[in-house]
Simulated scan of single mutants.
Amino acid sequence: MTDDEIIEACRKLARKRQAPPPAPPEAVAEAERVIGFAFPTLLRRLYTEVSNGGFGPADGVLSVDVGQWHEHIAEAYEYGPDPTGGVPAGVVPLYDWGCTMWSMIDFRDPDGAMWSSADGDCRPQGVTLAQWLLAAMDGELRFAWPNGEPPENEWHRPETAGDASSGRASAGN
């Protein structure tokens, strides 16, 4: 699926959820200033062409600025999901699974490599933002435990509503 097709699928989902309108470019620029890295290309397009948060799995990803959809991405980055300091600079919280579990995106990578963080353990997931979103739309996204083992076989899976066809690679362990 191309970036344009992913954007269109996310746009349909955002409309269905009544997500906020797209973020102004100035809000993205301010978030980049706070974070210290440029947004990965697809993520920038999603925020400025689709919605200021609310796209993606379950209730959606964080917004770009205050007063929109949940907490915002720059604030989550500044205060960090990991008080131990184990999250590398430029790896930014994107989706809150609850219970100190996060899907994060690497701003140092233009394709937006996805990471997971839980209880101070942070590791790459081995998928890009595009693959992660496709898994969410297909209902196949689950939390990728950094150590590979969920406690007591618990797989956190968000409720999703998909527009994409099935058969995509899972973005979890």
Rank of each mutant, 00 (worst) to 15 (best):
G54Y: 03
P22N: 12
A29D: 14
N147Q: 13
D96T: 03
L134H: 03
E26F: 06
L94S: 02
E152Q: 11
W145K: 02
E8S: 14
D119R: 08
V92C: 05
P110V: 04
G139S: 07
G86S: 13
E75H: 12
S103I: 01
E154D: 12
R45W: 13
E49K: 09
P21M: 10
R33N: 14
A136S: 15
R45D: 11
M101L: 13
S116C: 04
R157Q: 15
E149C: 13
S116D: 01
M1H: 06
E5F: 12
Q68G: 08
L46G: 03
W145P: 07
V91R: 00
V64I: 12
S117A: 09
A144Y: 00
V66R: 09
P88G: 07
W69Q: 09
E5K: 14
D4Y: 12
T84R: 10
G80V: 09
E75M: 11
P21C: 09
P150D: 08
P81V: 12
A74Q: 05
W97V: 05
V50K: 01
R45K: 15
M101I: 09
D3A: 15
T84N: 12
S166C: 08
T41C: 10
M1W: 04
Y47Q: 05
H70I: 03
P88S: 07
A135Q: 00
E152F: 13
Q131G: 04
A135T: 02
G120A: 13
P151D: 06
A130M: 08
Y77S: 09
D4T: 14
A14C: 12
G36E: 08
R45Q: 15
C10D: 03
G90S: 05
L129V: 08
E71A: 08
S165E: 15
P146R: 00
L46W: 03
A74C: 11
A118E: 02
M137E: 13
E26L: 11
E152P: 02
V64P: 05
P81H: 10
A144W: 00
G67Q: 06
D111T: 12
D106S: 02
L129H: 01
E49N: 11
A31L: 05
D163Y: 15
D163C: 10
G85L: 10
L94V: 04
L43P: 00
A144H: 01
R33Y: 11
G67A: 06
S166D: 14
P93C: 11
P146N: 04
R45L: 13
A27T: 09
P124C: 04
R123H: 07
N147G: 15
E159Y: 13
Y47E: 05
P83Q: 09
R11V: 11
G80N: 08
D65G: 10
E26M: 07
P57Q: 09
N52H: 10
V61R: 02
T100S: 15
G85C: 11
K16V: 10
M114K: 01
G56K: 04
S116R: 00
M137N: 07
A76K: 03
E140S: 14
P22D: 10
V127D: 00
M114V: 06
P124Y: 00
V87H: 01
R17C: 08
R44Q: 10
T100I: 13
G98Y: 03
E5D: 15
P25V: 05
V92W: 01
F55Y: 14
L133H: 02
G90I: 04
A19R: 04
L133D: 00
P93A: 11
R33E: 14
P151Y: 06
